[in-house]
């Protein structure tokens, strides 16, 4: 089987500082990969390199495109990359305000990706937006309200709806539950788990919260100082960590 995403030797420096170094892995269709590690370990840098927000210093990010099979997204043209970003890829930001248009209604936020790929029937767009609000447990009556009037948890759910409405093949998430109250986090996690299962989503989820990967990820990579120190099936890594740093990470969480 062809990997949906094949990351080869991705390295990114910020001046002399390492962002991430020599990261390689394959993600197969329908898989959810978790990336864990403490703050500053390079998780977001790696994610942004994969999603085309940052240009790696070296390495390849090969995506299995619908039209032309596996293509290195680092070297493809920006129009091609942007087209992927608004069709086959989705990106869920930690802070909903970074991923939403705060001055646009909930319906407009969800409908934007549809319109970006050519949807021109208002009634259809609105019906799809309303349907998606329902799927992320937002009352359809809020379709014309702006996200500024939503709670943090609702904003995050709206961001997820806005990203999933076009049926992306790969979802990048950066700390999707970060910054939310614990009870709100639990509800969001349940929702994400349902969507991942129902849609058969392929996803890469960055988090420092091991509970998130325990629930969502099939496989796990542990990062430290920009490098992957351990990788494997989620349960294996969490229950029987091999690397000293992974053991520390797991034990410190277990104490919480």
């Amino acid at each position: 089987m062809t990997p949906l995403l094949s990351v080869q030797g991705v390295t990114k420096h910020y001046g002399p500082h390492i962002g991430c170094a020599d990261v390689s892995f394959d993600l197969y269709p329908g898989e959810v990969m978790g990336i864990v590690g403490e703050s500053g370990s390079g998780k977001s840098t790696l994610l942004n390199c994969m999603a085309g927000h940052l240009v790696p210093d070296s390495g390849q990010v090969v995506f299995d495109t619908r039209g032309h099979g596996p293509r290195d997204t680092v070297t493809m043209s920006e129009p091609e990359r942007r087209m992927l970003a608004r069709t086959d890829w989705a990106f869920v930001h930690q802070h909903a305000r970074d991923g939403l248009r705060m001055g646009v209604s909930a319906g407009g936020n969800v409908g934007e990706r549809l319109m970006a790929v050519g949807a021109r029937n208002y009634a259809d767009i609105r019906a799809k937006a309303t349907d998606w609000l329902g799927r992320v447990e937002i009352d359809a009556a809020r379709v014309d309200d702006r996200p500024t009037t939503f709670s943090g948890g609702m904003q995050q759910r709206l961001q997820i709806a806005r990203n999933l409405v076009t049926g992306p093949r790969l979802v990048f998430m950066d700390e999707p539950t970060g910054g939310l109250d614990v009870s709100v986090q639990a509800r969001l996690l349940d929702l994400l788990r349902g969507l991942v299962r129902d849609m058969g989503l392929s996803a890469i989820i960055v988090t420092h919260d091991l509970a998130v990967v325990r629930l969502l990820a099939d496989r796990l990579m542990v990062m430290k100082s920009g490098r992957v120190v351990e990788a494997g099936l989620t349960d294996q890594v969490l229950d029987d960590p091999q690397h000293a740093y992974s053991q520390l990470l797991v034990s410190s969480v277990l104490q919480v």
Binding site: V104, S105, E112, M115, I125
Partner: peptide, 11 residues
């Protein structure tokens, strides 16, 4: 990348 223009009309 003109999806945004229709967002304005949608609104």
């Amino acid at each position: 990348d003109y999806g945004l223009m229709h967002v304005k009309l949608y609104e």
